[in-house]
Nucleic acid binder design. Structure first.
Length: 903
RNA sequence: GGGAGUUUAGCUCAGCUGGUUCAGAGCAUCUGCCUUACAAGCAGAGGGUCACUGGUUCGAACCCAGUAACUCCCACCA
């Protein structure tokens, strides 16, 4: 035999992937078959394949390949997401390398560069997915910013605006004063930082001291009526204060109710307001309210109708509103104002304080909360039906535990801020008139038409508005505002709502994604599905776990703890990595990734490789008769049993369990057991019947392996073993085997036989008898209530071969001078006169006896318990009675053995 | 602070309807084997207070309550 001892994946992977592509096996067009559809969560165009993608897409590929092999019309739609923020960062970096800054070029010029970048780098990840074996219909590859998908975004924006669900409003954004842009929450890195907590005194107007009287400069209690003390980490923002807030229940401050105070240094008068939001036990219990520079303060300000005084410029310096320190950077201003406050006696004390501060991921600038005008989408109305779909089970979340989280989020949903201060993305289709009014329309022309309608209102100033006067909103839409349409838009469900594709493929079947984006994406897709098609977008959502390293840390670029998937695939083969990932990642459970998993996968496919090498090496003798009927019947039953199990696992999305069932069937039942049973002796031929059946077993095994390990299964499928295959006869499109009858009795009996063989091997191990030494075996049958004696003679060949036994004798009397062992209630003897150590034998039997006695005691105690007898189900009692009888019978045999040894 | 979850062998995890398929798998460890498919292998072995405390039950890894530790999501106290 000249085939390699190990399977070399690289060549086969390339060969078969292009073969599949050439023969269009991934392609799907609507037909009369039942569809099975998955839309891929579109990876970012900036993305490179990481372990999370690997897990995700492996699961999708397993599902899609399985569906294909079940005769469904399987369609897996790939694509990429334009990822405004991430891509913008990449483009800006590329421009910087070329010496260009964004603000020096026009939006159009910028977009040209951005598209250039996208065309060059944007498809990398999809190419990488091909290495994994992803069987997507690549002809259907979509991109969230391509023309039709953008049109869908504009249309839905206009639709929702018309419906009153989209509005403009002020919102606090994370402002990066170095990048001079808003950044999303995800781009803010929170770090714990040592800070100072400054205690600042505010004079109370009409306090007991008259205005203008000197403040004491010595240390003083904050509870004086002359002034109140506020604790803050940001003293430079006092000029933006709009109020001081205290808890109405705070008895220390009842005298301040209705009072006013003066902001130190600038002496602006602000009210003392009451709100239970303020905690009495933090700081001094007095909170300075600065609506322009703190989100909570903003909300408090809204509630109490406070003015918003913004004292910061976009670059983080103080503006005119601050009155003092104008033009100073916020941090310089902080130092200076502390000095000023101290000099004038407003600073009571300074304490060290630790708190979390947000930093910009990209510039490392301290994030400044900043108010700005944004677009919002109302959520409540959209959320309700989306929640019902899940609660009523029309959409299943797997695992189910996420339903609670989902409900909690949907019931407490906040409006969605959909605008972003970026250029890369769909520009908001809103157009401003010179007077500040706006219209929403897809094109300038349409907007002009709308605007003229506005203008036709008698109070407006007439018709001299020109189309060029309209200015489109500068911002783009949140990326999720396009991806929430994904399951519909990939089938052109907006452009052409009644086309064949959407009618056939939608709603899709399964969505496989990470739990982190359950709200950001999954929930919103459900809303969009309901809103725009009055239907769910998918029936099942499989939520994967997070891929972590051995130490449980999330894999990330910055930690450098993520292996390169491409390297892994080179090392262990795509098949090895696929099953390595799947093995220990049930839905919703994090995956502690370790390369040893891939090694396991590699060993697995190598085992199959070698099994086929073995079969291939056999020569067939047509004149031989088939002696292996028992083994064959047994494996057929075992195979059917495994199929049922695997089917059940898949039905419950227990994919790693399905893989393990497959693994055990292949490695244990097929390789270790079946093949060993039928294997002819060295250089001996095999009968034609057994050979044919075995080859067909192998073929069926390749089929059930295929969804997990597509490459090696396809490679072996085309092996000479199976004769010459037709061009389109491929494993990828083979139909999964269907299961036949399961002979339960045969399966049970074989379990006993396996135990007998194991015991024989144990004896060899214990007595240091070589595998090559032939032994003899006798059995004394002893049927009991539970254990019928099995027809050992039927299994004689198997026992002889696997145990290396010369002859199997059924005896009626105990055999002396032999090592004995018991399987179920039958006793076996291996004659072994020399070296038989009766003492050791007695000890062994004594130990077994002890165990049985204890076991019998526990059984008896149950049976003697009246309450057990009266309340347990009859079937349970039955079992206990059998246990009792069998154990007693076993004990009798043991006693006999012991007494014979004692002689 | 609100919500969800996890805790079973050294590690990663199964254990589905409470009861002999109930304490299991793989890796790791140990022992013996280069036995003509596979040392990426074969044959075996050891290893457990099912986090803790109570409760329900004839019977609990499983159901209930409490405690502890950890994880994730959301909101974050100036």
């Amino acid at each position: 035999m000249n085939i390699s001892k190990t399977y070399q994946p690289k060549e086969a992977e390339e060969k078969w992937y292009s073969y599949w592509l050439e023969h269009k096996f991934f392609k799907s067009v609507p037909d009369e078959r039942e569809p099975y559809t998955i839309v891929m969560p579109p990876p970012n165009v900036t993305g490179v394949l990481h372990m999370g993608h690997m897990l995700n897409n492996t699961i999708q590929d397993v599902l899609i390949r399985r569906a294909r092999m079940k005769g469904k019309n399987a369609c897996w739609v790939p694509g990429t997401d334009h990822a405004s923020i991430a891509t913008e960062a990449k483009v800006v970096a590329m421009l910087k390398e070329r010496g260009i800054t964004k603000k020096d070029i026009t939006r159009d010029e910028y977009m040209k560069y951005a598209w250039e970048w996208k065309e060059k780098y944007g498809g990398i990840i999809l190419e990488q997915l091909k290495k994994l074996g992803a069987s997507c219909d690549w002809d259907r590859t979509r991109f969230t910013m391509e023309h039709d998908l953008s049109e869908a975004v504009f249309d839905t924006f206009i639709h929702l605006h018309k419906k009153g669900l989209i509005y403009r409003g002020v919102r606090m954004v994370n402002w990066d004063p170095i990048g001079k842009t808003g950044v999303s929450d995800e781009e803010v890195i929170r770090k714990e930082v040592n800070q100072k907590l400054y205690y600042i005194r505010y004079k109370v107007v009409n306090g007991e001291l008259s205005e203008g009287s000197e403040l004491p400069t010595t240390h003083h209690s904050p509870l004086t009526t002359h002034y109140l003390t506020v604790a803050t980490t940001r003293p430079e923002t006092i000029m933006a204060d709009a109020a001081i807030c205290i808890n109405p229940n705070d008895e220390r401050y009842t005298h301040l109710h209705g009072k006013k105070v003066l902001i130190p240094l600038i002496n602006r008068e602000i009210p003392v307001i009451l709100d239970e939001y303020v905690s009495m036990d933090f700081g001094t219990g007095c909170l300075k309210v600065t609506p322009a520079h703190d989100l909570n303060d903003y909300e408090l300000g809204q509630k109490h109708n406070l003015p918003v005084i913004d004292i910061l410029n976009d670059d983080g310096t103080l503006n005119e509103n601050a009155k003092i320190l104008v033009g100073e950077d916020r941090f310089a201003a902080r130092k200076k104002i502390v000095v000023l406050l101290e000099t004038d006696g407003y600073l009571e004390k300074v304490e060290d304080y630790k708190s979390q501060i947000g930093f910009s991921e990209r510039t490392d600038a301290v994030i400044e909360p900043k108010l700005s005008m944004q677009w919002f989408c109302k959520m409540e109305e959209l959320a309700k039906p989306a929640l019902d779909y899940v609660l009523e089970g029309e959409i299943k979340l797997i695992p189910e535990k996420f339903v609670n989280t989902y409900r909690h989020w949907m019931e407490n949903i906040r409006d969605w801020c959909i605008s972003r201060q970026l250029w890369w993305g769909q520009q908001i289709p809103a157009w401003y008139l010179p007077d500040g009014q706006y219209v929403v329309a897809k094109t300038r022309e349409a907007a002009y038409g709308e605007a003229k309608n506005l203008r036709s209102h008698p109070s407006a100033d007439g018709s001299n508005l020109k189309a060029e006067d309209l200015v489109q909103d500068e911002d783009v839409l949140d990326t999720w505002f396009s991806s929430w349409l994904w399951p519909i838009s990939v089938f052109d469900g907006f452009k052409d709502p009644n086309n064949d594709d959407i009618n056939y493929y939608y709603p899709t079947n399964d969505l496989v994604t990470a739990p982190e984006i359950l709200f950001l994406w999954v929930a919103r897709m459900i809303m969009a599905g309901n809103e725009f098609r009055d239907e769910v977008p998918f029936k099942n959502v499989y939520l994967t776990g997070v891929v972590r390293d051995k130490l449980g840390r999330k894999m990330s670029k910055s930690l450098g703890n993520s292996p390169d998937p491409l390297d892994l695939m080179k090392k262990y083969g795509a098949d090895g990595v696929r099953v390595g990932m799947l093995r220990s990642s049930p839905a919703g459970n994090d995956l502690m990734f370790d390369e040893s998993h891939c090694e396991w996968g590699r060993n697995f496919f190598n085992k199959i490789w070698n099994a086929s090498r073995l079969i291939k090496g056999w020569t067939v003798d047509k004149d031989l008769k088939n002696n292996n009927r028992v083994a064959i019947d047994w494996f057929e039953s075992k195979f059917s049993e495994a199929l049922v199990e695997i089917e059940g696992n898949f039905a419950q999305y227990r994919i790693s369990e399905a893989l393990m069932s497959t693994y055990k069937l292949v490695w244990d039942n097929f390789c270790s057991e079946y093949l060993e049973m039928i294997k002819p002796g060295y250089q001996l031929p095999i009968d034609a019947d057994t050979y044919g059946v075995t080859v067909s077993f192998l073929e069926n095994i390749l089929k059930i392996l295929h969804p997990f390990m597509p490459f090696i299964s396809e490679e072996l499928w085309h092996d000479d073993l199976f004769g010459k295959r037709a061009e389109y006869d491929c494993c990828i499109v083979a139909q999964l085997p269907t299961y036949g009858k399961i002979n339960a009795q045969l399966l049970d009996e074989m379990e006993i036989i396996k135990q007998v063989i194991t015991k024989i091997k144990n004896i060899r191990n214990n007595k240091q008898i070589s595998q090559k030494e032939i032994l003899s075996l006798s059995v004394k049958e002893n049927p009991t209530i539970t254990y019928k004696t099995i027809p050992y003679k039927n299994y004689e060949l198997i026992i002889k071969k696997l145990g290396n036994i010369s002859d199997l004798n059924i005896v009626s009397e105990k055999l002396n001078g032999a090592i004995s062992f018991m399987v179920s209630t039958d006793e076996f003897y291996v004659p072994f006169e020399e070296n038989l150590d009766p003492v050791a034998e007695i000890t062994r039997l004594q130990k077994e006896k002890e165990y049985l006695v204890g076991f019998l005691r526990s059984v008896n105690s149950k049976l003697e318990n009246e309450r057990f007898m009266s309340s347990a189900k009859p079937a349970i009692i039955e079992v206990e009675l059998k246990k009792k009888a069998d154990t007693e019978s076993k004990l009798r045999i043991l006693e006999e053995s012991l007494s014979s040894l004692a002689n």
